[in-house]
Amino acid sequence: MKVNETSVHFAQASTSDRSPLQQHLYLLGIKLRLQRQNMGNFFQQLKRHPTALLGAIVVILYILMAIFAPLLVPHDPFTGILGNRILPPKWYEGGKPEYVLGCDELGRDLLSRIIYGARVSISVGLISVAVSTVIGVTTGIAAGYYRGWFDEIFSRFADLLLAFPFLIFALGVMVATGPGFWNLIFALCFKGWVEFFRLARGETLSEKTKEYVEAAKASGQGHLTIMLSEIMPNIIHSVIVLGTLRMGSLIITEASLSFLGLGVGTRIPAWGSMISSGRQYMMNAWWISTLPGMALLLLVLSINLLGEGLRDILDPRLKID
């Protein structure tokens, strides 16, 4: 499995509050330290990052494709005609013009399935990142703010989960719960929240010592208010960057689990299972696996470039003067 590990590793590096490695990265300014920025400035910055802008556009197009999939598909993506089994794309000899990208191993229109597949892949990415973020950031801020037993319990639990290889963990959860979309999300989030927890906790620890928090305390604001309206806005940018980068790897994980025989497991087309079940046909019908693979590649690459751009833009230390 391939994962975007950089930001994760800042958090993983040590069981202590901040390992030397983290400190170093912190000093280097690579650690995600993000300031509140106004949004107008943000869009101007984005324009200066052509790859990130391109990534953003592609991601938006994909989301639109997923939303309007039922209107876009030329054929039924679920049922095929067995006679069209491994039909080549239309530009090949033997291809049929109405099946632009050809058909898969059960004679289903590949283009329609790729369009529909965007739904699963994008939902897997968005939902699992959203759930992981909410759980991770909530517990992370609370742990960093209150410290004490709450912090201790969650931090140890996080260490424990981190020591599990992610794919074995996801595989185990899928085996235990069975196939299905929501089980997949559950498997991904079960460990996914940890990175957000570590990030939010670490950020909170450093923000807590800052003057504005002290000032808020002095002015008599409650803990909850301080956490929500003072600390949260100051760490949310780094969470967004991490979230973007994680989304790509979670989408890839869906494909990896399909390869190991435990994907979404239903008739709903999902890119991961399409690439995985089509891989056997690579030598005589490359399109069945390669075209969904391209679709996935483009999406994940765009998400990563967007995430990378966000990191550059939102991290003030890396700006050129």
Binding site: M1, S249, G293
Partner: peptide, 17 residues
């Protein structure tokens, strides 16, 4: 940099095959 991201953006089994 975009090229460096290629490897991370596709499933390993597919790239291997």
């Amino acid at each position: 940099m975009a090229g460096a991201f290629l490897g991370i953006s596709m499933p390993a089994f597919w790239m291997g095959i």
